[in-house]
Design a protein around this nucleic acid. Sequence first.
DNA 1: GTGACTATTTACCGCTTGGTCACAAAGCGC
DNA 2: GCGCTTTGTGACCAAGCGGTAAATAGTCAC
Lengths: 216, 216
Amino acid sequence: MPGPRAATPPAEPRRPRIAAAERERMIVDAAIGFFAEEGFSGQTRQLAQSIGISHSVLYRHFPGKEELIATVCAEMFERRWREEWTEILRDPAPSLEERLLRFYREAGTLLLSPEWMRIAVMTGLSGAAAPSGLSSLLHDRIIRPIADAIQATCADRPLPRDVAEQRAWALHGRVFYLGARGAIWRGATPRSQDAALAAAIAGFCRGARALTEAEA
Amino acid sequence: MPGPRAATPPAEPRRPRIAAAERERMIVDAAIGFFAEEGFSGQTRQLAQSIGISHSVLYRHFPGKEELIATVCAEMFERRWREEWTEILRDPAPSLEERLLRFYREAGTLLLSPEWMRIAVMTGLSGAAAPSGLSSLLHDRIIRPIADAIQATCADRPLPRDVAEQRAWALHGRVFYLGARGAIWRGATPRSQDAALAAAIAGFCRGARALTEAEA
DNA sequence: GTGACTATTTACCGCTTGGTCACAAAGCGC
DNA sequence: GCGCTTTGTGACCAAGCGGTAAATAGTCAC
């Protein structure tokens, strides 16, 4: 008859006690790297081991794996976004090309990081893009402002809204794929990502201009 | 003492017997749709159920899940590629823009299909891009021929190899992202994918031309 | 110091899941 | 009809895995 669970003497030395908030930060930070590498089907035990805690600690701080993943996504798609990045696009002073370059240089530290790209793609594949905040980040803080900027620069020949957004998507796709080659497929990246970024933006601006002129 | 396994009378009606080769085709075809939707961590039992067979049939035809996935990848990245698609790029007659458009219109039936895109991305995330044949498909049959075509069209001002390839990647990224928005993130796709494709290629060609001229 | 609180751990539960096995039935040559 | 081969099936296995419970031990207020 298996009575109450046996009181077991500790075999391993205890880890230091850490305040809940701090521990949660440690977990989220580690989980980002872990899930980015292993995919969302990575095991919680392995994640715990990589932090150096027993895996039940995870469940004291998060109700379940799903909520932990949701927290990771919120961190990536909401908390880590800096609103001043979007402001760069709204600043009317420099040329469109320069604004775009500055925007992607700054925001690229997040958007083009392997962790962000991989988790963004996983979120899409898992079908949870909309609830994760990724869709609204992309649309409200990136595509729409870029489309606004595009429209503003050719005020003399008004550009339809959907065309402007489509061009914004085209540029973003180009930039995204730039990072994805390295982050997703681990292929050889261009020697200088910054130069490639500049080339992509320059090519985009020239192309858009030529296309608009050709239409006239 | 639990002797040899009990002989159990059949409860369900037997499925019809099917020749091994045909069954394997059924499995691979179903597995493509299944893994594309569920990810490589989808369960073999569920796959079997979707085909309407018991899951041990899978293991009669494939040594294990891994080999089944490898077969799926080979099907997508090797067997389904039509060499004539690459030939379109090599045909020197039409303009570069027209060749590119024809190429992506034809090859897009494979490359831009949700199954292909999702499995290509999963393969990348899983770290198996190179062994799966995806890398060589992309480089040998798409990027390199496109770069060749780009170089050939500006023969008067020779373009360095790496710049040509970089431009090819840029175009491909743009086209890829076009499909990815719908296939990976299930976002709203442009009303006409074909029009968007044409616009992407036109924008690319104009941009590349303007960029080359600006350099001079 | 003492008691309350809470972070941490070990052990465990139950379901899932890739994979195997022994056997049954369908086809086929004769 | 009779074996032989091939195809299909359900039961089973063992490890993996998300999640829980009971107990232990730092830490802090007093």
